[in-house]
Design a protein around this nucleic acid. Structure first.
Length: 417
RNA sequence: GCGAUCGUAGCUCAGUUGGUUAGAGCGCCGGUUUGUGGUACCGGAGGUCGGGGGUUCGAGACCCCUCGAUCGCCCCA
């Protein structure tokens, strides 16, 4: 006879099942973001996790790594090319246009959820990962950049991780400044082409700005003397950046100028920033974003300025560390069928009164008391035939072992006290 | 996509130059206590050594392939 084992399918590479203390940390990040987003009056949006492929290919730039090799794209049954979202901004912009949200501009939006990128997984880097995201669409003023940055700063502070994280800030100037700078960089690095790393020779074609933050020694020698963005900034772009930094200073947000900080995606202009840490190995960026005044037009809309940022929930959760699962206030321990029936009502009443209550469904008393202990409850409410007959319960304070009979009608004040 | 390290019970790991029935701690189940947890003691269950192929009298240990994780590069949150 053939002995066939049923193979349990494995989870997809780069996906994760998050549970327990890690899941609590994850939830804590999201809850903190939700709370702060309300303080700043950002409105909540929900969006589809997939879009027509063109939404991303047109807005991120065909030559970017994300579009050229990291998207999960597929044809649906109608032959349409669809893509699981690799980021939020493009879909958000599409939603802004297709729903006529121009009428609400300037519009402050917040969302969070899963994103998908076909990358080599590492710590803090997954194929399905999760971000929180904040955007302001339809505001050309530097105050919008400032508000987003102050919000990001407050989020990191309230998560208790701000002191290990620094804000690196740069400007890419307006479209013209950026283009002139880009041309100067191509010319400069082109003169040293043969001496650059292989990666940077490739970057020269695809994304010359990226050479600036290359880690390769061969490149660094030239980066030091490379043309600086500051030399190409128009007067207007300089004023814009000055307004942003003044706003940050006024709000007490610490920042560092990072002249070689650039963004990988094509749509960025003016402000570019990253909150970075050295505690996550190669994945240093915890929150990043900038201004993308060119994007709405790239998707066929009217010229519309916008700024935004996104942060990796897994990375923030790792910095936050594991969080204990909250303990119960009360554990109810019924013994016998009659007590179990009565306990259902008691448990419901206690929960309706706002207490967190646990009740084991099975096991002997010893087992249930052990579960009560594990739940971290202050009190165990023991309900057996004897108590039931008297209309009472035994309330045991688990830390001391003291116990006393309490009438069922008077349970709540005892348990709340 | 490239380079490197790793993969043994639910978890964290030990397994000497390849050599008989693969171990520990924690956790789990049961007992000492058939209505009392947290401490202690006793006992038990649980592993095709990631998967496949090969070398060998003999492989958890060696070789090849594959899957996965981790660390860099790349990229990015």
């Amino acid at each position: 006879m053939t002995d066939k084992r049923i193979e349990t399918p494995q989870a997809i590479r780069g996906t994760q099942d998050i549970f327990g203390a890690e899941a609590e940390a994850f939830a804590h990040v999201v809850e903190t973001f939700e709370r702060i987003r309300r303080l700043y009056r950002f409105r909540r949006v929900e969006m589809p996790v997939f879009e027509k492929t063109a939404v991303f290919s047109r807005s991120l730039g065909e030559t970017t790594d994300v579009v050229s090799k990291e998207m999960y794209s597929f044809e649906d049954r109608g032959g349409e090319s669809l893509t699981l979202r690799p980021e939020f901004t493009a879909g958000l912009t599409r939603a802004f246009l297709t729903n006529g949200w121009q009428q609400h501009a300037p519009l402050k939006l917040a969302t969070h959820g899963p994103l998908f990128r076909y990358e080599r997984p590492q710590k803090g880097r997954y194929r399905q990962f999760h971000q929180i995201n904040a955007e302001i669409i339809g505001a050309a003023e530097p105050q919008a950049d400032v508000e987003l940055l102050v919000m990001a700063d407050q989020l990191l502070r309230e998560l208790g991780i701000a002191d290990g994280v620094t804000l690196q800030l740069n400007t890419l100037g307006d479209g013209e400044s950026r283009e002139n700078w880009r041309r100067a960089l191509v010319e400069y690095f082109g003169d040293h082409r043969a001496e650059l790393s292989e990666d940077s020779q490739d970057r020269l074609e695809r994304n010359p700005l990226r050479i600036l933050d290359s880690k390769d020694r061969r490149d660094r020698a030239f980066v030091a003397d490379a043309p600086q963005i500051d030399a190409f900034l128009s007067g207007e772009a300089q004023e814009f950046f000055a307004a942003v930094t003044e706003g940050l200073d006024a709000a007490g947000v610490a920042w560092e100028r990072a002249g070689s900080l650039v963004r990988g995606l094509d749509y960025y202009r003016h402000t570019a920033f990253e909150f970075v840490t050295d505690r996550l190995g190669a994945q240093g960026t915890v929150l990043g974003g900038g201004r993308y005044d060119g994007l709405v037009e790239a998707l066929g809309g009217p010229a519309t300025p916008a700024v935004g940022w996104a942060a990796g929930i897994e990375r923030l959760a790792m910095l936050v560390g594991e969080r204990g699962e909250p303990s119960a206030d009360v554990a109810v321990v019924p013994m016998g069928a009659a007590a179990e029936a009565a306990a259902a009502g008691i448990v419901a009443d206690l929960r309706r009164a706002g207490l967190t209550v646990d009740m084991a469904f099975k096991g002997n008393m010893k087992k249930r008391m052990s579960r009560a202990n594990d739940s971290g409850a202050r009190h165990a409410v023991i309900l057996g035939e004897e108590e039931l007959a008297a209309g009472e319960a035994t309330v045991k304070t688990l830390s001391t072992g003291d116990q006393a009979r309490v009438p069922l009608t008077g349970l709540l004040p005892v348990l709340k006290g």
